[in-house]
Structure formats: structure tokens, C-alpha cells
Design a binder for these strands. Structure first.
Lengths: 203, 203
DNA sequence: ATAATCTACTAAACGGTGTTTAGCAAAAAT
DNA sequence: ATTTTTGCTAAACACCGTTTAGTAGATTAT
């Protein structure tokens, strides 16, 4: 019975169509401007149709967040595997920042905005994010095995490192660096990351 | 001519009334629920009246942000002045986190939300925030004078430290720690801050 | 082939939002 | 006493997310 398969495929295609239009408007004009009505207009369907494919606006953006995490993970895959763990950690930080600067809208959705998180109840819903998070944990563990961060809990060390790169990214994405209008914001981030990496080598 | 003075005073009192009601609703129910209509209702005036005292909702929340920065600065004043700069720096980090945990709504408004920043054009509008920021810079400079962070740009070091504590705070305030449901989030922050302080002592 | 059912979709409405406009009563100035 | 100014609001405008009731067309059953 090929009909139900076609139906399934069409449902998938419709979801993708909505997702694609929503992501485009969101990245170009922001969350508030990406209204259900505007998204519906872009794909030439009525607003009510969107609710046949997504429970509400939060679930729609939870789906976009998943795609963002996928892209994020791909960035992580470019981290050189054949190097000292401490070098890989440095590389990971650079790639993290690179993603945030090149995809501020996605970064916002993943780590700052509230909307997509309201569709997350159990840990399972965070799977896509955990994949990237595990990369960090693995590398930190390797660093500890090689004698770095002596005596400190790898879980806490990983959280400290995440917090640092998130802090850099979040201040950038949410425009808290315009207090230094004479400074180049991207350079500031790179330099601060450099300082941090110098510190970590000594630990 | 006492009339214009009374008028001025009454205008000030009305602004305070609006601000107080708005802050209360915002802190208890969040930004979206703090609608102009709801604020107007709380003070028993019509919604249009609020626009006689504030240009728009963004300016209203910019005013609340200013008050938040004032409170933030008071937290900073509790940092012990008669100690080694590196100890004061440690203390400053603790107080920063303490503020974020005790006043998540205010923290959000100061360092994460977009709304109040849309009323900021020139550096002058950020004065209230700069005051606190200068405290950090001063302490970092004293640390450098005492031989810490050798050779590194104090401005960048300060930004790195700010990014770190902001990262911890922002992940907490925006609920990105529920991925570790078995962990106590406040403890995690404290431990990560402890790890960071240990690092800094060695630099 | 026809009748019954089910599917995909939408028009319209509900109850909200920020903001602006026109007008009015009371206070102040003349 | 009359004019002007001030402080305020009712009502409207143009949006928003979401739900409901209903319909045209595809699918299934007879």
C-alpha cells in the first residue's frame, strides 16, 4: 500500500517547507517578526495549517533548534583528531566561537532563547545538544588522562570551559560589547580566547 | 513659583509608580506578561497614560535596567577592600554570581534581554553599567601591578573574566543546566567558580 | 459507479499585544 | 471671567498566537 507512504512523505515535505520558511524569516528578521501568519504567507498556506504540523510556535522553533544543533555538531567534526588533547581543546573553543559569530541567530536559539526550551521536558529531548556536549567531555577527560587539570573534577572543568566560551558568545550575540565602541568585537573575543588558552596550558 | 516644582515632583512620583508596578509584574511573571495594559491596570490608570511618561515599552524597561544596575553596584560595594587584589577578584566573582542567582530577572534584563538595549545609542546611556564594570577593571589592574597575569593585556583579561562569570550566570538564568537534572545547579556554579579561582591564583 | 468516510485545508473568530489619535474636564494663566 | 494649557482616557489601528467550525476533494467501501 504505497498511499500511506506517499502521505507520510508529503507530511515530511510539508514540515520541511514550513521549517525552511520559518528559519529563513527568523534568521533574517528575528523571532518576533517570524510570526505564524508571516510564515504561512511565505509558503502560501493559511496560518491554521501550520498547527496541523506543529503543536505551537515553541515546538516549531524547537525543531529549528534541532537543526541548529546538527549544524553545530558538524562544526565540531572539523576539530583535528590527531593531536594532543590540549590542542584539540583549544581547537574546539575556536570552532565554538566561530559558530557563534557565523550563526548568531542559531546560537541564540540553542543557548539563549527561552521559546524552544519550553518543549523540552525529559533529558531525551536534548539528545541533539548532548552529542556536541559529549565531544567536550571526551576531550576534557583525555586532557585529564594526560595530566592536565590535576585533581579537578572533569565534569566541573568541562562546565567551566563551556561557561567561558558561552559567556564570550552570549555577550557578542546579545550586543553587550557595544560599550567598547572603539574596539573590534571579533578581535576582542579572539584575544580573550587566546588568554584563556594560555592559562589552560599551564594547568 | 512653587507650582512648577510640584508638577515636577508629581511627574517624578508618577514615573516611580509606573516603574514600581512594572518591575513587580516583570519579576513575578516575566517580560511578556508585564504588558502595558496590565501595568496600567495595577496602578489604576489607562494604558495611554504610561506613554506620557515613557516613550515606549523598551524605554520603560531601560529605566528598570538602570535600577537593576544600581542594585548590582551595591552588591559590588560589599567586596572587601582591605585584601590582596587576587582575593578581591575572587570575592567579586562570588558576589557577581550571588547577584545573578538572587536576582535572575534583573540579571536577565541587564545582560541578556534585547528590549532595554534598544534605547541605548551612545556610550553615555550605559553609565550605570560602566560603574560596575570599572570596579572589575580596577581590581584586574591591581592584580597586574602585583605581578599576576604577567604580560597580558588587562583589558582583555578583564573581558575574559567577565565572560566566564557571565557564562555561568547566563546558562543558569536561561535554564541550560536542566540537561544535568541530577546535579544541583547552584553547587555546579559554585564549584566551577572555585576551579576558575584556583586557576587564576597560578597566573 | 455510487455512497460513505476520511483527510487536508481554511475563514473567521477569540482574546490578547504595543501604540496613536482625538477629545474632554479640570487646572493654570491671562 | 476668559483663554490656554495640562493630565488623562476611550477608542481605534494593526498586529499577534491559537482554536473552532465547516468544506472541498481524495480515499475507501459497497
Amino acid at each position: 500500500m504505497g498511499i500511506s507512504e506517499r502521505k507520510e512523505r508529503e507530511k515530511q515535505e510539508m514540515q520541511d517547507l514550513i521549517l525552511k520558511a520559518a528559519a529563513k524569516i527568523f534568521l533574517n528578521e528575528g523571532f518576533d517578526k517570524a510570526s505564524i501568519r508571516k510564515i504561512a504567507d511565505a509558503i502560501e498556506y493559511s496560518p491554521a495549517t501550520i498547527y496541523l504540523y506543529f503543536k505551537d510556535k515553541n515546538e516549531l522553533f524547537y525543531a529549528i533548534q534541532k537543526q541548529a544543533f546538527h549544524k553545530f555538531f558538524n562544526y565540531f567534526q572539523t576539530v583535528s583528531p590527531n593531536q594532543e588533547p590540549i590542542e584539540r581543546l583549544r581547537n574546539l573553543g575556536e570552532v565554538y566561537i566561530k559558530f557563534a559569530i557565523e550563526n548568531p541567530g542559531y546560537y541564540d536559539l540553542m543557548f539563549i532563547m527561552r521559546a524552544p526550551m519550553e518543549s523540552i521536558e525529559n533529558t531525551h529531548d536534548w539528545d541533539e545538544g548532548s552529542k556536541s556536549h559529549n565531544v567536550l567531555h571526551e576531550i576534557v577527560n583525555q586532557c585529564v588522562e594526560k595530566g592536565h587539570f590535576n585533581g579537578q573534577d572533569p565534569f566541573i572543568v568541562a562546565h567551566a570551559i563551556w561557561s567561558f566560551v558561552h559567556g564570550l558568545s552570549a555577550l557578542y550575540v546579545r550586543d553587550r560589547m557595544k560599550m567598547f565602541p572603539e574596539k573590534n568585537r571579533e578581535n576582542m573575543i579572539t584575544e580573550a580566547l587566546g588568554v584563556f588558552n594560555d592559562w589552560m596550558k599551564k594547568l
